[in-house]
Amino acid sequence: MLLTATHLEAAPWGTPLLRDVNLSVTSGEVLGIIGPNGAGKSSLLHVLAGGLPFTAGSLTFGDERLDTVPNRRRACGIALLTQRSTLRFAFTVREVVSLARTPHATGHNVDERVVAEVMDATDISYLADKAYTQLSGGEQQRVQLARAVAQVWREEDSRHRLLLLDEPGSALDLAHQQQLKTIIHDLAARGCGVVVIAHDFNFMAAIADQVILLECGQQQAMDRCDTVFSSQQFRQTFNVEPIIGVHPESGKPTVLLP
């Protein structure tokens, strides 16, 4: 098991944000997190990344307690793409992606190769020498995605690595949303565990092996998408009644809003 959380609770500013969260991610698995705004999805991701302390329960990465792993070693294994990033300094795109190699002691040559590979895989090589500050919002999001990927990328495979993505597709056009799916699939195929927050249920159904439904900091369900995605569940949680169908090609659930 790559990451295991049992009875996880967090109350960073005194108010309880997460209560009794139980989840696990294995190598090569994609876990989705869905839920209403303010449900605690991003907080959960920060706790899983080791950036927000939990107050009860246990959290293990590999076979170690995550809160005892030193900062830098943890950063070699876990990368988090946050929702917003405010970089106001005119780094080039290549420099931004290269920052991902900060925790690694793999040497200049390996770092350079990894950065080039990841920029190719995420289709931003053509932006490499552009100033980050002059990119559009969607382009910036793709660069930040590439940075997160480059942090957990190993040349041979990406086993024992965990990538946490907080709404990675929120600013992407259709083509790049499709490409994002491919990137996540490829990473999982290389053995990387991926946890993704998204509000697009069709996107989620296409990529996630399992989803967690979070509401008011509590885990309402954790199962395969075709089990969690039900009209009744969506009515309860989101107060909308969608039509749940089956994608004619992939066989995955589709969510149509009225």
């Binding site: 900062n71 070693r73 946050t82 970089l87 420099e95 991902a100 900060t102 925790p103």
Partner: peptide
């Protein structure tokens, strides 16, 4: 390297292993 990483934001720098 820490200063470069800090330009991304403090939580980003922390996730890059910076103390």
């Amino acid at each position: 390297r820490s200063l470069d990483a800090l330009l991304l934001g403090e939580s980003e720098a922390r996730y890059l292993g910076i103390n």
